[in-house]
Amino acid sequence: MTPRISEPVRKKRVWIGFIVLFALINPWYFAADAGSTLIMGIPLWALIILAASLGLSIFITWTIQTQWRTDSDERYDSGKEGGAGKENGDEHGRGARRDGEA
């Protein structure tokens, strides 16, 4: 069973993914004259950087969807509608704060 709470910052695979992708979005691995290879008027190296950037966006999507899970939504009623007539924000956990300070 998957653990109930999961944070990206505690996942090794997330760190590895980010480090690898960060390395790939820095253009250190091209020859100095790589700009002479063009595809539809765009240097090939720039397209590779863009592809790596898209890879980062996709990895971020994967991380958000699978590695980030807390029970906030179950604990705090997330379906509430605009606060017409609400006296103060106390219903949603403000009580916990006040207890802590007392």
Binding site: E7, P8, V9, V14, F18, I25, I49, A52, S53, L56, S57, I60, T63, I64, W68, T70, S72, R75, Y76, G89, H92, G93, R94, A96, R97, G100
Partner: peptide
């Protein structure tokens, strides 16, 4: 890529900060 980096950095603190924000208002 530097605008994508912003979202990546968020992922290192936003999940917990959101939960704490809810819990402690």
């Amino acid at each position: 890529p530097f605008f994508i980096m912003i979202i990546m950095v968020y992922l290192f603190f936003a999940p917990r900060l959101y939960a704490l924000g809810r819990r402690f208002s």
